[in-house]
Amino acid sequence: MHVLVMIVFAALVSVVFAAITNEANSTKTRAVYGLKTFGYFVGVGLILSWVIYFVP
């Protein structure tokens, strides 16, 4: 459940970030930016969750 909610959250936020970014000037670069943002969200979320797992 937690991971699923995180992935849905990351996907929705990434879509909006990709729509409003000024680092992209075409649909393709916009899509790449969105996918990268989604990857960062999920990746950093998983890394932080493993770091917290070892914190007593």
Binding site: V8, L12, V15, V16, A18, A19, I20, T27
Partner: peptide, 21 residues
Amino acid sequence: YGRALLIFTSISLMIVLGLAM
């Protein structure tokens, strides 16, 4: 219009999911 649709869909879905949760 394309960006408008993306923003509307994402934010609306987020509100619906937020209320569903």
